[in-house]
């Protein structure tokens, strides 16, 4: 039985592309309010895991969100996935307001216009990420960090219990990264739960309280001091190569 504050429970998750197994027997759980880094080299399966948790790719094993086994799309309405920037057309003709308001779609029927309550929720979400004044601006005119905040606001407007951020900090300058992590911590302190995929080990050590190191399977899981020790890093990144990753 799942503890009441467990937002995500993953049991024996395996994803295969043809004969290639991208993920094997992955199991872990995440409690409400946790901010965890998912660490691994390129090709380790970080994005694949997020896509499986979001129901975008097929998998075997069990995924449970807020105590509900995910069998159908509707079981994942409480999960928000923010893909890598390269997977999104940031030049798409959409304003920040329209983007954030799209998070409210789970509460609307086909063709139903979002009413004042939904617009208010979207405005609140924008204010929480510090973009209250940029609602009317086209997405294409935002900086990389601002765009990530806008997507985060969409997840907040969705009232997602679990937010998955895939390489959300890539391409953002250092002050922007610090600002984003302050924001993540603040949101998690207020009940959000986040998994952030990153290959920045220094950042993971400095700003996260939990790290899940994966390379097709979970190699280590715990506080940075234990999950990112030499033995775990060597197993995750391969002999020697982790030193350059840390540097």
């Amino acid at each position: 039985m799942t503890a009441p504050d467990v937002v995500l429970r993953v049991d024996d998750l395996t994803v295969a592309y043809g004969r290639h197994r991208a993920l094997e027997h992955v199991s872990f759980s995440v409690r409400r309010g946790e901010l965890a880094a998912v660490i691994g080299p390129n090709g380790a399966g970080k994005s694949t895991m997020f896509r499986a948790l979001s129901g975008i790719v097929k998998y075997s094993g069990n995924v449970e969100l807020c105590g509900v086994h995910c069998h159908h799309r509707r079981d994942r309405l409480v999960c928000a996935y923010i893909p890598q920037r390269s997977d999104i057309d940031l030049d798409f003709p959409i304003t920040v307001d329209q983007l954030v308001l799209s998070g409210r779609r789970r509460f609307l029927r086909l063709g139903q216009r979002p009413g004042p309550a939904h617009r208010g929720a979207a405005r609140d979400a924008l204010a929480r990420v510090g973009l209250a004044d940029l609602g009317a601006r086209p997405l294409a005119q935002l900086s990389g960090g601002q765009a990530q905040r806008a997507f985060l606001a969409r997840a907040l407007a969705q009232e997602a219990d679990l937010i998955l951020l895939d390489e959300a900090l890539s391409g953002v300058d250092q002050p922007g990264v610090d600002g984003m992590l302050d924001l993540f911590s603040q949101l998690c302190a207020n009940g959000a739960t986040m998994l952030v995929a990153t290959h920045d080990l220094a950042l993971a050590r400095r700003r996260f309280t939990r790290c899940i190191a994966i390379n097709r399977q979970v190699i280590a899981d715990g506080a940075p001091a234990e999950a990112l020790d030499d033995r775990a890093l060597e197993a995750t990144f391969g002999s020697g190569s982790y030193r350059s990753a840390v540097a």
Binding site: R76, C79, P83, F92, I94, S102, R105, L110, G111, Q158
Partner: peptide, 22 residues
């Protein structure tokens, strides 16, 4: 007209559109 918002969401980010039930 009826599908306008859903057309926009599925065109821009189909993965998110599916997640919110479209």
């Amino acid at each position: 007209g009826v599908a306008f918002r859903d057309l926009r969401m599925t065109t821009f980010d189909p993965a998110h559109a599916a997640q919110v039930g479209i």
